[in-house]
Simulated scan of single mutants.
Amino acid sequence: MEGFGKRLKELRKEKGISVIELSKKINYSKSVIFYWESDEREPSISALKALCDFFDVSADYFLGR
């Protein structure tokens, strides 16, 4: 099953931005984004909202629903 991290990485690459650029846009550290993309950690609700707003997708998309 495709996980949160893979979806995040695909969206980031589609938008053509680096992890550093994303971290600046949503105000989370680049190391946290690396953890999310590698599925080592999951984002908080507030981080998930920031990601959904930035990428203009629903939380359901990130959750694979």
Rank of each mutant, 00 (worst) to 15 (best):
E2W: 02
G3P: 01
F4I: 08
F4W: 04
K6F: 03
K6M: 05
K6C: 02
R7E: 02
R7S: 05
L8K: 04
K9P: 01
K13P: 00
K13R: 11
K13F: 07
K15F: 12
G16M: 14
G16V: 15
G16H: 15
S18F: 11
S18T: 15
V19C: 14
I20W: 03
E21G: 02
L22V: 13
S23I: 06
N27M: 09
N27Y: 10
N27D: 11
Y28V: 08
Y28D: 03
S29T: 14
S29Q: 10
S29N: 12
S31F: 06
S31E: 06
V32E: 08
V32D: 03
I33C: 11
I33F: 06
I33K: 03
F34Y: 09
Y35T: 06
W36V: 03
E37D: 09
E37P: 01
S38F: 04
E42L: 14
E42Y: 12
E42H: 09
E42R: 15
I45V: 05
I45T: 04
A47C: 15
L48A: 14
L48P: 02
C52E: 15
D53C: 02
F55W: 07
F55A: 04
D56S: 13
D56L: 06
V57A: 05
V57E: 10
S58Y: 10
S58G: 10
D60A: 12
G64Y: 00
